[in-house]
Design a protein around this nucleic acid. Structure first.
Lengths: 198, 198
DNA sequence: GTCTATACGTAGATAGAC
DNA sequence: GTCTATCTACGTATAGAC
């Protein structure tokens, strides 16, 4: 039997990397950064404590890595919304539906991570700046859609970025509410859209 | 000189108790439960590490104590809104203004604590239940005001509790947004009220 | 009531065998 | 690549002096 090739090792590494990342996303979303233990992550991913450090330098390291990844996905999603066929109104509807299509719990975890991202204490300034940068990029995308919708008279008047913030705040608030778990509601896209309606 | 009376000792105790509680509120709101160290609290209150334990049994103990206190204040505020002169609409306006009249940063910290309250991991079931109980009481107050407003045609139709949740979620989301600090906005009561407007 | 010094447990991170 | 065992730092909580 031939020894494993470099390719195979690389595949294993990538696979493990993903497993650990997914486990960490779950744990961080539920407990927050400080309360999450490496052992929580490794036991969720079903591997040894020590192995973690063959894939990530530190707890902060993986946390930042995941946040960045989640924010990139957020940017992507907004861009996809923006390139959607239809009116700006329909684009925001699409984005809203996507936000609550958390059939995959992973989607929900990602939203919670985004919300938590900035209250995360004591990260290097450089990384904090990068996070803000990404977040801002996504919000500017939403803001652009709103601007177009205002031209067509679909959305209420007002600073588009500010409206985007109201919209996003409502989403974050509802996400957190449902995450509490003791009185979950079925979020209605129409009720969320009222926020922006002309 | 006469020795200190029981009264005087009691005063000192109460004063210290308040100082520690206020410091803890500040620290917990900014760092969350897990990341907050007893030494953060004591250094904020400008007293020794050890003294803390003459006033509270544990970190969890003070945390629960503060949360309960904050939730009681929330209930009180809603009740005050409810007993306010004017239409139900004006009562919610009053409540909203109060929410954002965070000239005192303490008010802001309290809101953040309320938001954090439930993601706080591993509290005894009994206390968690008590928290939910208090939270629900407050939300029911808001819901009652909305119900009355619906009768007068001031608010949109729909399950009043659900509307209260949308309203409160928007508040929470906006509070968190401004707590992030990198793009704070002046929250407009009118924009928040749009949420409920008939 | 307040402080300093210390015990103890826990969790992040490393070492070395397989 | 993966594991177990270990080191180390730090934070909660206690003890005891003033």
């Amino acid at each position: 039997m031939a020894p494993k090739s470099d390719e195979q090792f690389k595949d294993i590494r990538n696979k493990r990397y993903e497993e650990i990342s997914n486990a960490a996303l779950k744990v961080f979303a539920r407990k927050g950064f400080a309360a999450s233990k490496i052992s929580d992550i490794t036991s969720t991913a079903d591997l040894s404590h020590g192995l973690f450090y063959h894939y990530f330098d530190s707890k902060k390291d993986i946390y930042v890595s995941i946040i960045m990844n989640v924010l990139d996905l957020f940017i992507e999603t907004v861009e996809t919304a923006e390139s959607q066929k239809g009116t700006p109104w329909e684009q925001i509807v699409w984005l809203t539906k996507k936000t609550y299509s958390a059939s995959l719990e992973q989607e929900l975890d990602r939203h919670i991570l985004i919300i938590q991202a900035f209250q995360s204490e004591s990260l290097p300034d450089k990384q904090k700046k990068a996070m803000i940068q990404k977040y801002t990029t996504a919000m500017e995308g939403i803001s652009r859609i709103i601007t177009r919708g205002q031209r067509d008279g679909l959305f209420i008047e007002g600073d588009p970025m500010e409206l985007a913030i109201y919209y996003q705040s409502l989403n974050h608030g509802l996400t957190l509410w449902n995450a509490k778990g003791f009185y979950p509601i079925d979020v209605s896209v129409e009720k969320v859209m009222r926020q922006l309606q002309a």
